[in-house]
Design a protein around this nucleic acid. Structure first.
Lengths: 344, 344
DNA sequence: ATTAGCACTCTCATGTGAGGAGTGCTAACG
DNA sequence: CGTTAGCACTCCTCACATGAGAGTGCTAAT
């Protein structure tokens, strides 16, 4: 959407949006003139607002109420008006130190990040760990557990640790397991989980004949180990966000808590985003997830070795402080990316 | 609280409670006579209800409304009236199969259990993994990770797997790490995490002098590895529970979502419970956690080797179907316990 | 001891009307 | 011609009143 509004209309639109973000009441013409110091009369502003309504930027809850920004208005705002980049020095420090000192694994770190984002923004913090495409295997270990069980531990370059218990159906003994570990590490280190899965599928199809040799055992064990590997989703801060006045509607709260519980919807949403660079803004009805059409989502990928691996972001009401939130998410993703550069 | 009510009063109390559980409207005398087929007139019932109110079992929202059961009434109900034990065959099967086939680790299993409890009861499902006192070390492994990092993997008899990344400050090489793993496994297998922690603290205090021998390295590494070991709490099903009419109050919803987010409060609550046998019922104000005073909590410990290790349960409104929920929680905890018996 | 009768209380839904905020339109103004 | 004052109009909100209904407590009769 280009910058199709003239200077004056844009200023009015901006005033309405800012006012509405500050306080979710429909904005009247008189209020705009006073609060934002226009040298026009309310009548003039009314004309402009009527035009903006015709263009689809504003709407009225009812005839004699003020105006409210539409999704289109927020979109315009985000694309054409926002400029100021706030810098989150303290955030940077907090997160940065947390990790450098604590030496946590990826999931803990992401949970922490989500909480930080939430507590600063007062909205929902979101963090998604790298999925199979974004996770590069560093090490896989098979540890004998109970009699017929094996614990598999998977370590990735990104710092994700995953574990799983699988059955020891072939009754492999510890030294065999250790040999398998070695073999797989040598063979697959440096490949993404997805690549490995695909390669495994192919190998296993080809070598079906020689069922019980060591390589084949390794491969099928590995396949089972990687089978459930997927993104983890961290969403935090619901109780805090409920303090906002727009969440005095119970049906809305229900929809939101449903959204939070349905991690799969989030993951499919995130998958669409992984291709694009930088901070992404999804406003209201732009969101394919139906229960999120009254929310806005600000996300950004964080990178490992220049390749986007996971996503962090903020979920809040459409009426959110976009400029702050956008730079917040941007800062946070840069911090994570930077951490990987030096920590890797 | 003994059975201090006469037969007739008890029947009336039961009627009020049942009616209120079905439908959260104050219960009137006329309604009781009709619905529950008493051969007394409303006036008589009124007298009885007035007595019950004097005794603290019922209360009136306002003068000319019907009566509502108090916490004391629910308590009496739970202790003296409930008898029917429902059997959750299907639940048993579902959970049972899930585990036997899937071979999951404890945390996954508990999350699953919590979800199952929630989806059957329509309330919140709760599950808490064994804490340091209830977890018996089966195996601890140190896996070299990145240059200066070690991944620690802890396996317990209960099926809990935990991992953690720690710094390799002493620059131990792989074979040293493996020696340390072996040493610790030999030394500490079969002890609870708590016991090990205590023993470590003592050992390290005593051997402070000989700082850099192998044993001491092992011990301090181990201490760091076990430092963060704690219970995990799984609470699920909020959006579902919000459908109940009593949660049309937003302040209440906020309190509940705060409760869910504050895992520590839950853990301290659970700690108090671990000592007791069987299903425990905490009704409303009996709960020390202030944000849970309008809820009831039904919990039971599950056991491993006859020793209670963790807790599962259901959190719901005080007006809950106690008899169903109690037997549900009871069944579930038996299933888990049974699984450990054979699976261990 | 139980019950019918009755006055009383309180809530809740409904309706009404004043007040207010904001609009759109028109006509006048610079 | 853009801008503005004026004004009628719309619609929401809130306070208040009102009546129906549900349920009570009390008393007197059974």
């Amino acid at each position: 959407m280009g910058k199709i509004l003239d200077e004056r209309s844009e200023r009015v639109l901006l005033a309405v949006i800012k006012s509405y973000i500050e306080n979710p009441d429909p904005v009247g013409s008189r209020y705009v003139t006073k609060k934002y110091d226009f040298h026009y009369s309310p009548a003039t502003i009314r004309n402009i607002m009527a035009d903006l309504e015709d263009l689809g930027f504003l709407s009225q809850p009812h005839t004699s109420a003020g105006r409210v920004p539409t999704d289109k208005a927020y979109r315009y705002y985000v694309e054409n008006i926002i400029d100021e980049k706030k810098d989150y020095k303290e955030l940077l420090e907090t997160l940065y130190n947390k990790i450098r000192s604590g030496v946590e694994d990826m999931d803990t770190l992401l949970d922490e990040t989500s909480r930080t984002l939430s507590s600063i923004s007062k909205y929902l913090g979101l963090a998604v760990s790298p999925g199979p495409e974004g996770s590069v295997l560093r090490k896989i270990e098979f540890v004998p557990y109970k009699d017929d069980r094996i614990a598999v531990v998977i370590l990735t370059d990104e710092g994700v640790i995953r574990h799983k218990i699988i059955k020891n159906e072939l009754a492999l003994n510890p030294s065999e397991l250790s040999r398998i570990s070695n073999y797989l590490n040598k063979e697959y280190k440096g490949y993404t989980i997805k690549q490995i899965r695909e390669h495994l599928a192919e190998e296993l199809r080809r070598d079906k004949a020689m069922y019980d040799n060591m390589i084949n055992r390794s491969l099928s064990l590995c396949r089972e180990a990687l089978y459930t590997y997927g993104s983890h989703v961290f969403i935090t801060g619901l109780s805090q966000m409920l303090d906002l006045p727009e969440f005095s509607d119970i049906e809305r709260i229900k929809r939101i808590s449903k959204t939070i519980e349905d991690k799969r919807a989030i993951i499919t949403l995130i998958d669409r985003i992984m291709d694009s660079e930088g901070v992404q803004v999804i406003i209201g009805t732009e969101n394919p997830v139906s229960d999120m059409k009254e929310l806005s989502v600000i996300v950004s990928t964080y990178k490992e070795k220049g390749r986007p691996s996971g996503v962090i972001g903020i979920i809040g009401p459409k009426r959110m402080d976009y400029s702050t939130v956008i730079s917040l998410v941007d800062s946070a993703s840069r911090i994570l990316t930077k951490l990987f550069e030096e920590g890797g």
